[in-house]
Computed example of a mutant assay.
Amino acid sequence: MLTMPRNAHEELSDRFLFIQALEAVRCLEEKIIESSRDANIGAVLGVGYPRWTGGPLQYIDMIGSRAFALRASELAANYGDRFSPPRMLVRMAEGDDRFCA
């Protein structure tokens, strides 16, 4: 897979933000959390996910589900399967759907 050259700061930032966002998708997919709102508020207030993102699922929406899934696949190729997009995200990426209204 061809990847865009990135500087070290961008690469680390993506790795930190993406892994947490992917876990939020998995939690929603497995019905551990009930809504994207719960995921966003819980992550920002509970674990310190950066406020400027609006939360992990809002962060995915900000990037776009298709672009996020593609970048997650690049990260998976470089850093392991933990970055692989969950099925829910892959389905959403097909229509470039959003988590939040």
Results as ranks from 00 to 15, higher is better:
34 E>K: 11
97 D>A: 15
61 D>W: 05
60 I>K: 01
86 P>W: 00
21 A>E: 04
89 L>Q: 01
79 Y>I: 10
68 F>H: 04
75 L>P: 06
46 G>H: 09
58 Q>L: 07
79 Y>P: 07
72 A>M: 08
32 I>C: 09
82 R>H: 07
44 V>W: 06
50 P>I: 02
83 F>E: 02
87 R>D: 08
99 F>Y: 06
41 I>T: 10
38 D>H: 06
74 E>V: 11
81 D>W: 10
27 C>Y: 07
12 L>S: 12
4 M>W: 08
53 T>R: 00
39 A>R: 00
82 R>I: 13
88 M>L: 15
65 S>N: 12
20 Q>F: 14
67 A>S: 09
89 L>G: 01
59 Y>C: 02
72 A>R: 09
15 R>E: 03
15 R>V: 04
101 A>M: 15
7 N>H: 08
24 A>R: 00
30 E>C: 02
76 A>I: 07
100 C>F: 03
85 P>N: 06
65 S>W: 11
39 A>Q: 01
98 R>L: 13
3 T>L: 14
59 Y>D: 04
86 P>H: 03
66 R>P: 05
20 Q>V: 15
34 E>P: 00
41 I>L: 10
36 S>D: 05
42 G>E: 05
52 W>V: 11
14 D>V: 01
99 F>S: 06
1 M>K: 14
11 E>N: 09
95 G>M: 10
64 G>P: 10
30 E>T: 06
15 R>I: 04
80 G>H: 15
42 G>L: 04
32 I>F: 13
29 E>P: 03
95 G>K: 12
57 L>R: 05
83 F>G: 02
22 L>F: 02
14 D>Q: 13
24 A>S: 12
27 C>S: 12
38 D>W: 04
19 I>T: 09
52 W>M: 11
24 A>V: 05
95 G>D: 13
58 Q>D: 09
66 R>C: 08
3 T>N: 13
1 M>G: 14
98 R>I: 12
75 L>F: 15
101 A>H: 11
76 A>S: 10
90 V>K: 08
4 M>A: 11
7 N>V: 04
59 Y>F: 15
57 L>T: 03
47 V>E: 12
38 D>A: 13
52 W>R: 15
38 D>L: 06
24 A>Y: 02
54 G>L: 06
